[in-house]
Amino acid sequence: MTFERIKQILKTKTVGIAGCGGLGSNCAVALARVGVGRLILADFDLVQEGNLNRQFYFYDQIGMLKVAALKQNLFRINPDVRVNTFDIRLCQSDIIEIYSKCDVIVEAFDKPEMKYLILDAVHNYMPDKHLVMGVGMAGWGDNNLIRSRQSDKLIICGDEINAIADECPPLAPRVGIVANMQANAVLEILLGVNEHQIHTERT
């Protein structure tokens, strides 16, 4: 598929991104670059200096709402992307309301309780929708531990092992890998599997 055709398809699509931290901000950037038509962003937090080691914000955006700062950054990359922002702490009814019109939903929360909340909401109220989750990306190194797997419409990206801890902080490389893996999974859902790509491993 040519990039012209890819853009043509993607511009008609809407992707919901729940959380605009390390996963959400980087995933949104990748999707805006390839031309997804509409992104629906939600996060209640402000940009802090400590976020800049992995999240797609700039030093001069410290103190801004993350959704506002991210919208600004996405427009600088692709002025054609449409962005809807919600600066709220999502509850189950918000998730259903905000994301029910999306073609795919990306889970990009940091807290396990929130990850469960969206999984439960999508499973029970939007069972026809794909949910792409990020689970396990703290620390550095161990490239080959990072992977993805699928169960029906649920796709999990990450190592599923490394939680955040004082001695195991989230850092740009691994967080960015998982965020882009989520964006890559979104493309496969929206565009289908690329027939012109080699899918077997070299032996």
């Binding site: 959400g24 469960y116 396990g136």
Partner: peptide
């Protein structure tokens, strides 16, 4: 999806496909 309250009553038998996902922090 099996709820926590259903763990004791949900039977796993030969041939079943089971996913156990650890929802760890980070995002």
């Amino acid at each position: 999806l099996v709820k926590k309250s259903e763990h004791a009553t949900t039977i796993v038998k030969d041939g079943d496909d089971v996913m156990v996902l650890h929802l760890i922090s980070g995002g």
